[in-house]
Nucleic acid binder design. Structure first.
Lengths: 286, 286, 286
DNA sequence: ATAGGTTTTGTCAAGCTTTTGTACAT
DNA sequence: ATGTACAAAAGCTTGACAAAACCTAT
């Protein structure tokens, strides 16, 4: 930010036509600029500051008060930040903190408009949900805020998946085993598969293994994915898994499962985040 | 709502021609405006307030009493609030008329949040673009507005299609022949195919037929779709089409082609709107 | 560094017009130069030193303080040293060659995640599109591949521009004149203006000048930009341009226009790539 | 519409420091 | 050539002020 600060106040004044004293007043009163400083304390401005001052001037010329002009320019600067570091999860986290439904959806809108679903999931949502978990563990977020985040993210992801059971590609049935309540990862995995041309059926959280078998038969699944976040939830189901693996290509995923456990029941284990896992599964079957 | 309040009463007065004292009176007596306040207590108005005052002025000029005018303006505002007209293209068209990018995208957001891509294309976008064409022909829309609409719709559709060449399904190459500049229908067709599990490569408008052949070879296409809106653009390319048809499953589509013409070069003809055509092609190959 | 030292301070002073005492001061204070020494202790400068001094002079003439000028010259030298190329367009071009939509979008995702939109446009997209044009001219890319690249780039840029007509800044209407079909540059220009706080309305390629006038009135444009890539497309429109220029601040841009042509119709001409032009326009109006 | 009080905002001054080109003595 | 000195130009902070714009209440 102050990285490219190199204009002194006189030159900024020359370039914009705003008197030095006024520039200092705008800084002091409205925080319009945050120039770096030379060793001796002189203000050093960058090119972006020239833009900001010009924008403020335009607004003031248009009848807006100085204070409001500064506020608008600063708000715009947020938009710029968004343009410059679009993959940050901060806007989303802020909205979650405020329980701001509209803000959270707007943040997701911006992301999904700019980036592929794969990228948004891998680079924003997975880290964001992880961080939300940590904040909750440290007591910096309430359970309510965490639920709020989950609900919004799940809702948006499911909306993206609309119609994902249609088509002609390979078919996958995704589910969490009984006792596992975190279904967002399998929805992400489903989107990853969908992007790779698969047909996807998501059964959701806390699903009895017989139901999974039944659903797999019904849609003629080419693969069945059982994902577990929490360790141990699969422990009591070795027999059911073995049976499932005997009939379908069974895949375990998530940190609650392991390659060893998968091997034991005749399944494969997929490592990594949901998108990586989707890629691996597609490679496996394709 | 008061989020965008930034005009002070003097500027609002300047922009509307209504004296500040009168603006305050309207606020006090009829609640016409609800400006925010600065820290020091100054009123801060937003763009919407300018509109309201202007509408009230028009009504008063038309002979309505001030109290009544305020009531009407406020009632009107209420109507604007509940825009529950799910599948109508009116909000989109209104936004296009106003060259309102945000409004148009918001309208599309609402549609896409509620309905499948197929539905939005068939029931909203195709009719809307058709109507835009008619309005343009009748001189009720300018070319600029039509371009504006095309750009937004094309942009959104392409965003929906991002990543559509990935996967394991059948592969299609879509293009418009030389001279044909309307590529939105093939993008729609591509989305229809994608929803049916296909891999899609769109070459776009105005593409030489040799390029199409080259691309088809490169991606190993199972089908090649050449779509023409304007009659006659395919007339000079019978030989090239014949050659293309000899190597790939060639399909012609759009009102600029015909079943007879297709038969003549050894291709199939797909009737109907892009989604119907996608369904037909999927049935044909699947 | 000082391997070919052969200029004494008097000669360096002659060539640059900077007094010897000042050269010594710059060396002592800012470490701008590191001359070798003769046996007798005389400073011996090389060709690079002449450049450095000249660059410092230019910066100082441009209003930068001596200390900052020296810092910038030295930093510049550092940058020249490490030719990292994370900004290469090769992954994008490779993906285009393969008609690989996912690959191309992933390449753009990576770029946009790491660099500002301005940087990606100036340093990657403009050169990449230029190179694609050349490859096409040399027959190393087909028209289909070129269309494919355009569609992806245009789609991503438009996605970045979502909502760009919102805000409180100055407003610009951008369009290409009739016959000009390359609209990507104006979209880039629009993004450049957006990053500088402007509200942007893009009408697109091949737009009649009356439409532009109409749109400018509708959004209350502070500037109208008409951009032409191909020479001659503006030739038949001198009257219409003159009229436009009479009502709005009209700006011509692109290699298909010229300063002379602009002057003739009462418009300004903007040189350079779209981002440079955006900066110039912002400076003009601000 | 007026009166009387408040807020906003551009400007200025005083007293002191930093920066920088040049000059002088060694 | 070096080191020190110096003075003009440009900047910094604090505090204050006055005109313009706005407030409420009568």
């Amino acid at each position: 930010m102050t990285d490219d600060g190199y204009l002194r106040i006189g030159e900024l004044s020359q370039r914009t036509g705003v008197a030095p004293a006024l520039l200092r007043a705008w800084e002091r009163r409205y925080g319009l600029l945050h120039p770096g400083r030379s060793d001796g304390g002189f203000r050093l401005y960058g090119d972006g500051d020239v833009d900001r001052v010009r924008r403020a001037q335009q607004l003031i010329a248009g009848g807006v008060s100085a204070a409001e002009a500064a506020r608008l320019v600063l708000a715009d600067a947020d938009v710029e930040d968004d343009l410059d570091t679009p993959l940050a999860s901060t806007p989303l986290l802020d909205a979650v903190r405020r329980l701001d439904d509209v803000g959270a959806n707007a943040a997701l809108d911006r992301l999904l408009a700019r980036f592929s679903t794969d990228t948004v999931i891998t680079d924003v949502l997975v880290p964001a949900l992880h961080e939300i978990g940590e904040l909750w563990a440290r007591g910096e977020l309430t359970v309510g805020q965490e639920h709020f985040a989950s609900a919004i993210v799940r809702g948006r992801l499911l909306a993206l998946g609309r119609g994902w059971d249609q088509g002609a590609g390979a078919s996958a049935v995704l589910a969490c085993p009984p006792g596992e309540r975190h279904d967002i990862p399998i929805v992400m995995l489903g989107l990853g598969l969908r992007a790779r041309g698969w047909r996807v059926t998501v059964l959701g959280a806390d699903t009895p293994l017989e139901s999974i078998d039944d659903a797999a038969a019904r849609v003629g699944a080419d693969a069945v994915v059982v994902a577990a976040l929490m360790p141990g939830v699969l422990d009591d189901h070795a027999d059911a898994l073995r049976m499932l693996a005997a009939r379908r290509r069974l895949v375990l995923a998530g940190p609650g499962a392991s390659a060893a456990q998968a091997a034991e029941v005749g399944a494969r284990y997929l490592e990594g985040d949901p998108i990586v896992a989707a890629g691996a599964l597609a490679a496996l079957v394709g």
